[in-house]
Design a protein around this nucleic acid. Structure first.
Lengths: 352, 352
DNA sequence: CTGTTAGCGCATTCAA
DNA sequence: TTGAATGCGCTAACAG
């Protein structure tokens, strides 16, 4: 194996020759027309008499003809495969996002090539190159690095960034309303009398973390509270780390409520609270950004912000397809998907 | 839009002509060799002197050459795209399965085309046709209908059925050890003194449901208990239905424990138990087949059977690739992934 | 080991 | 409205 670079990419194996599949030639013979007529009858709008069209389709059906996308893509320099690059399929957020994307793509006749980049810049870039090789017309990505969208766009591939944007991106983007969502969540707690609220957060460089933090701050400001910076607990992106960070937060400070910035961190926070046998919400309130199913199953159910993740995915797909079809002005589009506060049992009045 | 049939399939839009990308010709010129030498230097093993190979790769890198998969696939009659057909990406079971598949495929240089068929035979079949059009060499499917694997195989596409098999399938298959898993889970309850155990199950026609039911029965037989058929509560496949079925089960029978046959049904069962304020496991024990993350988060955490779902996905991919590469004898392969009992807090001694 | 030739299956010119 | 000719970009034969 070569060490690196594009030549390292795997290549088709000497697979046993697949069965010979019918071609337009075969259909043409069967229908008694020319190959080009078959092509037009099957796909192009206009340019084929209804009679011929019917005959050709019948013939195609009869002999089991199925268009060869490779040939079609090669010739027409288009493709109906769309690349989707996400960070972690096992995280319900990304799974929902992908589900929304796939649904919309499929109903428009497109296919989804899904790559899990594990949030790793190298894998993300490698994936981008694979998608370039596939000549996909567009990619939806939850970006890790600006370089990935960059490379794709430099090669004429349309890009929609999903969930977050990095610095000054030139691509279309679909974002959740992180600031509003976080503000409402924080205000909900403040309204319950909480003044010492811990924020468990993993990153603030992406627009997601930055927005949620901003909303958290804004809620304080709007209510004449000052944010105690020590209550902003920066942690790593996994549940175990979140648990340890929560432990430290509770040891060092007397917070009456905790907000976790996403669904994964919430797992860690909840685990720690349960471990300490703290009564929720009597002794401490817990709330989470990014509602996922388990949050309704625990007792008490968690107060959360629902990001409409599936809809976010659908939006991404719709936007990308519109772009590909040339239905949009050159101006960069930014779509915002609403965030919705869902109050459940895990938040209550602040203990005195 | 035409009503149905293959001609209805969407076709590439008149997208704006993409940027012109470098071809082997360009690389050849840049490196001062012939196109075929470029091809060999870049991909084929052997048949190119190290010097030339290096020169070609450097040239390719320099001008930003990226292989065109469409052209390559067309010419070589192979493809590195693999179809994956699953029922519900939002269900963590399928998400994990897909994640395992993708991981293994990607590390072997293959791409995953993911289709969510929603457990619908029509969508499944439609997806199969799309994958035929893409000329994928193989497909991994959690089958809904026997027709789907059938159609694919008839067209020379290798198929691996994942998680379950339908009737006498001719395809390779990767299954969980449902019978053993369910037996161990049931025996665990029996050992705790339970004799009236409810089984919440949605289907018994697929090998999954049938296997789990068989394991449930076997455990009873092995322990000289007779299965009360009324305690086998057949339900629909969603959580809400499971909840209603659980309600009925509890109303009509005095079970001391409930086993749910999968992770979705467990949601319904748990919801109903909580709604009734039943103390778990003091008043009733609850156990679930198919461990997913939330089951460790609820209080008490659920006793489950872990299906090694990600590993199951990896196995599927490995098996399929081996088949594609022709490394396997013609004989149909059946891989069994172990099931593992995980005892947590939701199961306890039977109340007297 | 390398270059030349040919053609994968299709959609698109252009003529008729 | 249809048919004939062309070539998308690549790799498999073959010859050298």
């Amino acid at each position: 194996m070569s060490p690196r670079g594009q030549a390292a990419r795997a290549v088709p194996q000497p697979t046993q020759p697949p069965v010979r599949r019918p071609t337009v030639q075969d259909v043409a013979r069967e229908a008694g027309v020319s190959p080009s007529t078959v092509s037009r009858a099957l796909h192009t709008r206009g340019y084929a008499s209804p009679a011929v069209r019917a005959r050709v389709r019948a013939a195609a059906e009869r002999i089991g003809y199925v268009t060869d996308h490779n040939a079609r893509n090669l010739r027409s320099r288009t493709s109906t495969s769309i690349g989707v690059l996400i960070s972690d399929l096992r995280n319900p957020f990304y799974a929902d996002l992908a589900a929304g994307i796939e649904q919309e793509l499929r109903s428009a006749g497109y296919q989804m090539v899904l790559v899990n980049d594990n949030g790793d810049p190298a894998e993300e870039l490698q994936a981008a190159e694979t998608l370039l090789a596939m000549r996909v017309p567009g990619v939806i990505v939850t970006p890790v690095t600006a370089k990935c969208p960059q490379v794709l766009q430099d090669n004429g591939v349309h890009v929609v960034c999903a969930d977050r944007e990095l610095s000054r991106s030139k691509s279309d983007v679909v974002l959740g309303d992180n600031e509003t969502g976080a503000r409402e969540l924080t205000e909900h707690l403040i309204a319950l009398g909480h003044t010492r609220i811990g924020l468990l957060i993993d990153e603030t460089k992406w627009s997601t973390g930055a927005g949620r933090l901003a909303g958290f701050r804004a809620a304080h400001v709007d209510n004449d509270l000052t944010v105690d910076e020590d209550l902003i607990a920066y942690t790593s992106f996994d549940a175990d780390a979140a648990r340890l960070t929560t432990r430290k937060l509770l040891n060092d400070h007397d917070v009456t409520a905790i907000i976790s910035a996403n669904n994964v961190l919430a797992q860690g926070a909840l685990a720690e609270l349960k471990d300490r046998r703290l009564k929720i919400p009597r002794q401490i309130s817990l709330a989470a950004y990014d509602d996922v199913p388990w949050m309704s199953l625990v007792q008490p159910a968690l107060t959360t912000v629902d990001q409409s993740t599936v809809e976010m995915g659908r939006s991404c797909a719709r936007l990308l397809l519109a772009r590909i079809r040339g239905e949009l002005t050159p101006k960069r589009r930014q779509v915002k998907v609403p965030a919705r506060l869902i109050v459940r049992g895990s938040t209550g009045p602040a203990p005195r």
